[in-house]
Design a protein around this nucleic acid. Structure first.
Length: 327
DNA sequence: AAGACAAGCAACCGCCCGAGG
DNA sequence: ACCTCGGGCGGTTGCTTGTCT
């Protein structure tokens, strides 16, 4: 049986069922929501197909499950994705790629659907502005070495000004407000945990000694693997250019601070730990900032929310100041 | 004021996997 | 071994809302 046959059988079965059962589709009504909530409150979740029937809902089990998990569940968090959550999403996506449910496990109350939507709308928008593929090497590098440090800086700034609180307006169910604000040491080693890559930057005595040489969309190779950086080889390839100018070195000892944690350990703490500090790493770039500005500003735009858009004039100015001051 | 366009997001779709019969 | 079913996942669609002209 080939794939077409299977597809045909599936769609026919589904449509038959929906015709027979006169199943509803599309947006949920308040009445449907109440039916679902009441039923689950009294009987619990699971066995969604029979649940849908017993609850008197003319919906597929899948539809009920989705509605419950993504919207009606009492512990679901809604509203703006906080800076901390954005940073986590970027970090986790660099590790796992489009494993939305896995990423969502580290953002309590957030659904995979919401994170996926965030990625597709916000992150991919930036890639579009930069006229490069979201999976391209330079976009990933830019995320890691510019966007994420900037996010971390903003988080820390907010934490500092508010006495350790975060920018989140909602009640935190998780532990993201436990942020290490130590920015004074020179011994911080930026330790981006690229999946199994175990890539560490050069040690402190030679770090970032080369000329800053961000690749541009124009001179980039076709490096963009559509996969996330899941293997050492893939990552090694993806950092090859940066390696030349930043003296990257691979860590062959399998030393991996983040990976040694349990899946449910607070990931944010790792991001701000002394040994993996985005804030201290982010603006240690040296060299020709004009190149950087050109390509950061390439997307044009402007006038957008500062918190939402890395690639605005203010940020570039800030970056330039950091570089001029030799930070 | 209104139409066009873009962005955001809820919901759906197809596929896959594992459990149980 | 095979089939069915429940459930989960990532990708996609299309509606709603906001912004621009």
């Amino acid at each position: 049986m080939d794939e077409m046959d299977v597809k045909g059988m599936i769609s026919a079965t589904q449509s038959d069922q929906e015709d027979q059962m006169d199943l509803r589709r599309g947006p949920w009504t308040v009445e449907e929501d109440l039916l679902l909530i009441n039923y689950i409150t009294n009987h619990g979740e699971g066995r969604w197909n029979s649940l849908a029937r017993c609850a008197g809902l003319k919906r597929t089990g899948k539809s009920c499950r989705l509605r419950w998990l993504n919207y009606l569940r009492p512990d679901v968090r809604r509203g703006n994705i906080t800076l901390e959550e954005q940073l986590l999403i970027l970090e986790l996506h660099s590790r796992w790629g489009n494993r939305w449910s896995k990423i969502a496990q580290h953002l309590p109350g957030r659904t995979d659907n919401e994170i996926k939507n965030y990625w597709r709308t916000r992150v991919q928008k930036h890639a579009k502005q930069l006229q490069c593929d979201v999976n391209s090497k330079q976009f990933k590098d830019t995320m890691r070495y510019l966007w994420m440090p900037r996010l971390a800086e903003r988080i820390q700034a907010a934490a500092t000004t508010s006495g350790g609180a975060t920018t989140n307006h909602h009640h935190h169910h998780h532990h993201l407000n436990n942020i290490n604000t130590n920015t004074s040491t020179n011994n911080n080693i930026y330790n981006p945990d690229f999946s199994e890559g175990h890539i560490l930057p050069a040690s402190t005595n030679n770090e970032f000694s080369g000329s800053q040489n961000f690749t541009t969309p124009e001179n980039s190779s076709t490096a963009a693997s559509s996969d996330s950086m899941g293997t050492t080889d893939q990552f090694a390839s993806s950092v090859s250019d940066l390696k030349d100018c930043y003296s990257f070195q691979t860590n062959n000892n399998n030393t991996n601070i983040i990976n040694t944690q349990s899946p449910h350990t607070n990931f944010a703490e790792s991001l701000f730990s002394p040994s993996s500090n985005y804030f201290n790493r982010g603006f240690e770039l040296q060299g020709n900032v004009e190149q950087n500005s050109m390509w950061l500003g390439g997307g044009g735009g402007g006038g957008e929310d500062v918190l939402e858009n890395l690639w605005n004039v203010e940020d570039i100015w800030f970056l330039q100041q950091q570089l001029c001051n030799g930070v």
